[in-house]
Design a protein around this nucleic acid. Structure first.
Lengths: 379, 379
DNA sequence: CTGTTAGCGCATTCAG
DNA sequence: CTGAATGCGCTAACAG
């Protein structure tokens, strides 16, 4: 078509212009040729690995025999010479099994998904690390994904399992409830959840690992009371594990007949914490201690207080949750509650692997995990 | 066999004992039966998704037609009624394409690997986030992996590509050089590297994104000199981008004829930084400013100095590299050099996607990325 | 002990 | 416009 147009024009225009046209034409053609050849080169190079067939040919045996030897199945039933020949061929050819073909056949991918709300939140890397350690030891690879706590994205990654891309899921789900998860379990996808409040095992075989955040908050509050504080405020975001922590805080105060003083903010970030603290102070409230629903917010609170020239912990003590790495690094260092994320991740992975290899069957198990208050200089 | 043994014993022993044996036998048999049935249940549930064949059957067309419709290929060449019937069947059956089968056929996984030394190091999450954003927009999923900077593990993930598990790799490689990487490029695996020193594009089509860390260190040092410091020490770990930064520091001092004062430690962590700082002080050196090769070490230095009762920045100023989240949070907040990790990751992902879809071909491109000194209260 | 056979689910010619 | 046929690379019976 291009060429026809060009030819048509060719006949109408004078020689000089023709030269220009010809030039343009040549450029076009040659660029197309370059593109095509490049594509050919790329295609030619693409993933050109030796297959079992190649190995079989070189070793002078059938492809099936190669498969048998490589999978070690019936290892006693194949002659040493054959095995040797095959191994040699594998070595020479640099044979690597094609993952997709194997997965298609066996219906196993040997990979797990670790679904977290936000990889940028310093709480999660430690968790992920724990998962990876156990999973890899069991021969599974881990793919880590951030969902921003959006239900839609959480579902996306669960669907990957349904498409046969992953064998199981470990997740911190903000948007999805057990009702949403059930279809996946029904379809045979093992799921392990990490939760922030007490769970009981149910008929659906989802395993839960939970930290009793309500109790933790209660303990932390009681700890502050025991240090002599009586006006203790709480600052929290909305959603996630925050509300559970607020509940615990409330309980502790009630049992001592102290008044709750709660300031919420939309974001559970440093900025959110600072904002809430300012709002609290501006209301004329003058607590002697502030508990923030996570460390990020607690650090924000600290900054806000320092900005007002208030000394920590002398005038106002501050405590948080999560024991993120920065908690140790701020000044004064932050009193907080650790959930042993690393171990939590490891246990979750362990449970998932058990489901996967059939060691564990039956209804869902709920396992409580420990927490601990870490007292530092901010209280 | 078990049964035969039991039967044999049955004849020898008195009735009472026999009862016991029988009991054991029954227990064994029943437990085996339970196990088997459980396995059957599990197997039955396993990934039982509708296939194109099912859809075809329901829609009364052939599997090939289903594939055509679903892939939108020749969308104009299929009757609307057929398309409608197929879509309806897809909906009813909840059909999801089998990822493995598709990947096997097309030789594409639409998955990228993002290989970093340590996901726990706060420098990387932002990078990963950048990669994920771009990759997902282009239809790729990202699998993130930590290598601990070990050559062996870096290779492991590269081999995943050779096995057809991933289409391309974005990586921060500590152990692997271009020589190690070349075979993978030869095999058609696009690789994008993130580097800490100046690179030039080479014949091998590996794309490099680098930040000139030497220049950054030189600038940071000059910045301190301009603030009136003349006795500036540097604390660094061994390996990684650290040595490049030391070089830049040296250069800046030389140009002003100032003496370099370097204290190394094996670990580029907070502890390493604190250790090095103590060693420096114990030597009787009294610098007016200390540059640490990364923020983690810088924070360690700050702690060590505070431990000695030295005030920051009045007696000794401190600066670091990376702008990890904690840099902003410590007191005094830490002056550091940001590398815009998020954007760095995004660009790298963009380049990889270009290679993948053939938009970019030819030799490796090296692209310089910006950095910026962020002045805070520690200097 | 080894080879033959039969798909896994899908994309893609090639005929009708 | 649609269906039949083929094969990606591999595993797993099943025969010899």
């Amino acid at each position: 078509m291009n060429r026809i147009q060009a030819t048509a024009r060719f006949q109408k225009i004078d020689n000089f212009a023709n030269l220009g046209n010809l030039y343009v034409l040549l450029i076009r053609i040659s660029s197309i040729i370059i593109l095509i050849s490049a594509i050919i080169i790329v295609r030619t190079k693409m993933k050109s690995n030796a297959t079992q067939k190649d190995v079989a040919k070189m070793a002078g045996v059938s492809q099936a025999t190669v498969s048998l030897v490589l999978n070690g199945a019936g290892s006693n039933s194949i002659s040493d010479t054959t095995v040797a020949k095959i191994n040699e061929a594998v070595r020479v050819l640099g044979y690597l099994p094609n993952y997709m073909a194997r997965a298609l056949r066996t219906n196993q991918t040997m990979t797990l998904a670790c679904v977290v709300p936000d990889i940028m939140n310093p709480y999660y890397p430690a968790l992920i690390r724990g998962v990876q350690a156990v999973a890899e030891a069991a021969g599974y690879d881990v793919i880590t994904v951030s969902t921003d706590g959006q239900k839609e994205r959480e579902l996306h990654y669960l669907k990957m399992a349904l498409q046969g891309r992953i064998d199981g899921v470990i997740g911190v789900f903000f948007g999805l409830g057990i009702i949403d998860l059930e279809p996946f379990i029904e379809a045979g996808i093992p799921i392990v959840r990490l939760e922030a409040s007490v769970k009981r095992g149910g008929p659906i075989s989802i395993d839960d690992f939970f930290v009793d955040n309500s109790q933790a908050a209660e303990d932390l509050t009681s700890f502050l009371i025991s240090k002599g504080h009586s006006r203790i405020a709480m600052i929290a975001g909305r959603g996630g594990p925050q509300s559970v922590r607020v509940d615990g805080y409330r309980k502790a105060l009630q049992s001592k007949r102290l008044k709750a003083l709660i300031q919420l903010d939309d974001a559970f970030t440093e900025e959110g914490g600072a904002r809430a603290a300012v709002k609290l102070l501006d209301k004329g409230e003058k607590p002697t201690a502030i508990i923030a629903a996570n460390d990020l917010m607690a650090i924000g609170v600290m900054h806000a207080l320092m900005g007002r020239g208030l000394s920590i912990p002398d005038e106002i003590a501050v405590a948080g949750f999560d024991d993120i790495p920065a908690a140790r690094l701020v000044s004064p260092s932050l009193t907080t509650v650790t959930q042993f994320q690393n171990s939590l991740g490891a246990q979750a992975a362990h449970a998932l692997v058990e489901r996967l290899n059939g060691t564990a069957i039956g209804p869902g198990r709920a396992t409580q995990q420990p927490y601990r208050i870490i007292e530092r200089l901010s209280t």
